[in-house]
Each structure stands twice: as structure tokens, then as C-alpha cells.
């Protein structure tokens, strides 16, 4: 099967280290990776709030491009992209919608084929697939002596009607990290939304939601927060730094996984993080302790 990564807009715009770390992990897992240069963004809750037919159309274009390249699995990194692509894919299986959308796609020489199977899967869910998880375990060479908290991406976990994830599967990111020997603290908001989507709609509310979370994060005792969505990273890096003095630095979980399978801090672009100094200190101490 052929795989690709859906970059989305916020990741390209602000957090390319997330895409890079995910891509390097996939390559190390030897999945057949096809780079795609012509995906637009998913339109996010912006488009979902204004015009849901256009949301399906924009993503039908993305899906049709993947189908044209024989890609069977689109791996997403962002919660919002995951939900919007999955939702659009479901809607494209309604014949009436499909007809209207394909008529528009004809204008640009594309067509969506409902019978050609294509899967949308978030990177954390992908890495939790049984055979991939096994393969990943065999690559682990380094135990990071850090204690993490996790913020899960809402729109990957929910709604269960679309996500396919059972309640018991909702530790997808935490399980991956602890399987490498990292320890985890419980964090009150792990499954309860970072509030990041509010940044676009009303950033003053988003900031207040952030403050509630940063306080709990402090209490959790974790020294690093692991996230799996660029909206969460925005809330826990740039906004946390803006709003409180003692920050618990936040990092994409793929960067930590990458380090545990032998990639360097340079490969994982730890420098790109707003709290690079704190994170490097924690990681360097961890490696020292590790011998």
C-alpha cells in the first residue's frame, strides 16, 4: 500500500518539524511513502462553519489527487484535518453529493471514485496498528528519562461515530511514548480539548481556556507535554509562553518517538521549538543518566 502525509496549513506555516519527524519515522518503518505536492489545506472549522458543500469539494479534490497517485492511506497530523477529511470522505459516499462534487471536479480534470478504497488515519492511530507498533518496538534504541503529560487531539478521538476509536484506545499517544520507556503523569485535560480552535474564533476566550490548562499542567508533575496536533502546540508553546512564567514545554510526540529510535536532536529539529533551551536541557540530562 502507498502512503502519504497530509501536511495541512498550520504545520507548513509554523510547525514543519512535526511533518519532518513523522516523515522520518515512516521512512524508518519502510512504508512506501509518496510525497504529494498539490494538496490544499482541509479548510478547517473555518470552512465547516461557512459552507459545508465547499468543505466537501475542497477535500474531494485532495482525495481525488491521492487516488490518482494510487495512494491507499493518507496519514494526517492535525486533529482538524483528520476530522474534516474523514467527514468529507463519508459525505462523498452519498450519491447525490458525489454527483454534484464530481461535476465540479471535472472543471479541473479530477474525479473522486467512491469504490476506490482510501483511508484517512492520524499518525498516532497509524503507529498503534498492531504490525506497525511491533515494527516500531524493534527500532527503539534509546530510553528517554523524561516524564510526560499528553494532550490528545480531540478531533482524532471524537466523535466515536467517525473516529472508530473505542474509549480504551484513547491513550494512543501515551501508549506509544511509554512503550519506549518514557514515564507519564496523568493530566486532567488529556482527553478534554486544548481550546486551540477558539484561537481563530475568539482568542481572548482561548487564552482563558489556556490558563486553566497551564495551571493543571504545572500540577501534573510532567516535565514535558507531548501533543499530536498543531493547534494544541500553538496553545501550549507560543500562548503558554505568552501567558505564564513557569512553562511546561510542549513538543510533538513524533519528535520524542524519533529520538527514541535513534534520530538526533538536529534530525528532530528540537531547535525549532520556542522552548528549545529547556527541552534540550531535559533531553541532554536524560541521555547522560542513560549512560
Amino acid at each position: 500500500m502507498k502512503y502519504t502525509i497530509f501536511p495541512g496549513c498550520l504545520i507548513s506555516y509554523r510547525f514543519p518539524e512535526y511533518e519532518k519527524s513523522a516523515k522520518l519515522i515512516l521512512q524508518k518503518l519502510e512504508v512506501e511513502f509518496i510525497p504529494v505536492d498539490s494538496f490544499s489545506c482541509c479548510g478547517s472549522q473555518v470552512l465547516e462553519s461557512i459552507d459545508d458543500e465547499k468543505m466537501v469539494l475542497l477535500n474531494a479534490r485532495n482525495l481525488a489527487i491521492a487516488q490518482e497517485l494510487d495512494i491507499g492511506s493518507i496519514i494526517t497530523l492535525c486533529g482538524s484535518c483528520t476530522h474534516i477529511l474523514k467527514k468529507s470522505l463519508i459525505k462523498l459516499h452519498d450519491n447525490k453529493i458525489l454527483k454534484r462534487i464530481n461535476k465540479k471536479l471535472r472543471l479541473i480534470g479530477l474525479k473522486f471514485f467512491p469504490k476506490k478504497k482510501i483511508e484517512i488515519i492520524h499518525i498516532a492511530e497509524f503507529l498503534n496498528k498492531k504490525e506497525i507498533f511491533q515494527k516500531f518496538q524493534n527500532l527503539v534504541v534509546k530510553k528517554l528519562e523524561i516524564n510526560i503529560a499528553v494532550q490528545n487531539p480531540c478531533m482524532v478521538l471524537r466523535p466515536s461515530s467517525i473516529s472508530n476509536l473505542e474509549l480504551k484506545d484513547r491513550k494512543i499517544i501515551r501508549n506509544l511514548l511509554t512503550s519506549t520507556g518514557i514515564t507519564a503523569s496523568s493530566y486532567r485535560y488529556m482527553n478534554r480539548c486544548c481550546g486551540g480552535t477558539m484561537l481563530a474564533f475568539d482568542d481572548s476566550i482561548a487564552k482563558d481556556l489556556g490558563k486553566l490548562r497551564y495551571k493543571e499542567l504545572q500540577k501534573s508533575g510532567a516535565n514535558i507535554l507531548a501533543v499530536g496536533c498543531p493547534n494544541c502546540q500553538l496553545m501550549y508553546s507560543i500562548y503558554q509562553n505568552m501567558l505564564v512564567d513557569d512553562v511546561v514545554p510542549s513538543i510533538f510526540f513524533t519528535q520524542l518517538l524519533g529520538l527514541s529510535i535513534g534520530f538526533s536532536q538536529k534530525d528532530m529539529e528540537i531547535d525549532k521549538n520556542i522552548n528549545t533551551e529547556i527541552i534540550s536541557n531535559i533531553l541532554n540530562n536524560s541521555i547522560k543518566n542513560n549512560g
Partner: peptide, 20 residues
């Protein structure tokens, strides 16, 4: 909200919410 209108216009004009 004006910011959402701006993002919507960005999508129509460029294919992305943010300035890529």
C-alpha cells in the same frame, strides 16, 4: 467574526487558511 472572513477569503484565494 472578521478574522474568520479573512481566513475564508485566504482559502478561496490560495487554497490555505494561513499564508503559505
Amino acid at each position: 467574526p472578521p478574522r474568520i472572513i479573512k481566513y475564508y477569503e485566504n482559502i478561496k484565494r490560495t487554497g490555505f487558511v494561513f499564508n503559505i
